[in-house]
């Protein structure tokens, strides 16, 4: 056995040993008899290696259970529970495996992408051959990355463990620490959201992941809370988003801003007046800053007639662009 047995092979031998053991294996037995552990240079090095490996196996779904000796409490040992190890009986057709391969492509987020592709490897075992691709003809679903907060939040939500993070409020820009019981993670309209109980406020709240500043840490015990059976995370998110839903009245130069025209809705209200010869559109929106970016990019082809806040955002962007040109010493005359 070589000095540096690759980690995957050491872990493989550990799983086989713990599946086959009668009763349990103590750490000492593992260290002296399982391939890859016998060369650990010190007890501390072995302990570190074993603890990490045990954690890795549990994350992969291998049920490593701790067994305490009947006679001596310090005779603690480990084994793998074979019943909990096994995937419930299932057979996947080649076409179903194809759908799952498509689903595994779904996440562009590093965390979930790795998880999904590993899940697919496990399911290939019970899948008919050959796996068929292109099951949903021409459809390629993709969800955009959620950022570093997603992984810890998913783990905490699954473990029913509270989390603490620093959050920048959308309305005020105020930055504060929040302690939250994470109920559910939702992706919708280009954003990732956490819905959970804000302990500081004693009420459910919706948090946008991109407004979390810094890292997410878990606090307290696992299984520390239950999600209320009547909690409807989707409805909470919808109402949070609807609270932001508005209509913008835009004046649009003839033949211009086709993309905005395509999103315009008929409106029963009477439109404000626009420049001579321009069209007036009612365009629904939820995220004012995104729409302001889009409108500012059309510069003199689109003007915001209403609401004034949106117009101010656009005008501020335009003034910043003029200021930038001045700052860089390029003329904007003519």
């Amino acid at each position: 056995m070589s000095e540096s047995l690759p980690a995957a092979e050491r872990l493989l031998n550990l799983v086989i040993a713990l599946v086959n053991t009668t009763g349990k294996m103590t750490k000492e037995q593992i260290r002296t008899s399982v391939a890859g552990y016998d060369r650990a240079p010190s007890t501390e090095a072995f302990e570190r290696m074993f603890e990490r490996d045990k954690e890795t196996l549990r994350e992969l779904g291998v049920p490593v259970v701790t067994v305490t000796g009947a006679a001596h409490a310090d005779e603690q040992g480990y084994r793998v529970d074979p019943d909990a190890y096994e995937l419930p009986p299932m057979q996947l057709s080649a076409a179903q495996l194809g759908i799952l391969a498509l689903a595994a492509e779904f996440w562009s987020d590093q965390v979930l992408q790795v998880d999904a592709s590993r899940a697919l490897t496990k399911l290939r075992v019970v899948g008919a051959r050959p796996p068929e691709g292109e099951q949903l003809l021409g459809l390629a679903p993709r969800v955009h990355p959620a950022g570093p907060a997603l992984g810890p939040l998913l783990d905490a939500a699954a473990a029913r463990q509270a989390v603490r993070f620093t959050y920048r409020a959308a309305s005020t820009g105020e930055v504060r620490d929040r302690t939250v019981e994470p109920w559910r993670l939702l992706a919708s309209r280009g954003g990732w959201y956490l819905v959970g109980l804000d302990r500081g406020r004693g009420a459910p709240r919706v948090f946008r992941l991109s407004r979390i500043v810094g890292s997410v840490t878990s606090v307290g015990d696992k299984n520390a809370f239950a999600v209320p059976p009547d909690a409807d995370a989707r409805a909470l998110l919808d109402s949070a988003q609807e609270a932001e839903a508005r209509t913008a009245w835009l004046g649009v130069a003839p033949e211009r801003a086709g993309a905005l025209r395509a999103r315009a809705r008929p409106s029963t209200e009477s439109p404000p007046t626009a420049p001579e010869g321009w069209d007036v559109l009612a365009v629904p929106y939820t995220r004012a800053s995104d729409l302001a970016d889009e409108i500012a990019a059309y510069t003199d082809a689109v003007v915001v007639l209403d609401p004034p806040e949106l117009r101010e955002s656009v005008v501020r962007r335009l003034r910043e662009a003029v200021a930038m040109a001045r700052r860089l010493g390029v003329t904007t005359d003519g």
């Binding site: 979930l112 998880d115 783990d155």
Partner: peptide
Amino acid sequence: ARALRLGTREAVAL
């Protein structure tokens, strides 16, 4: 010979 079950996050992802 047993097929390994899915971990929590693996199941969530799919």
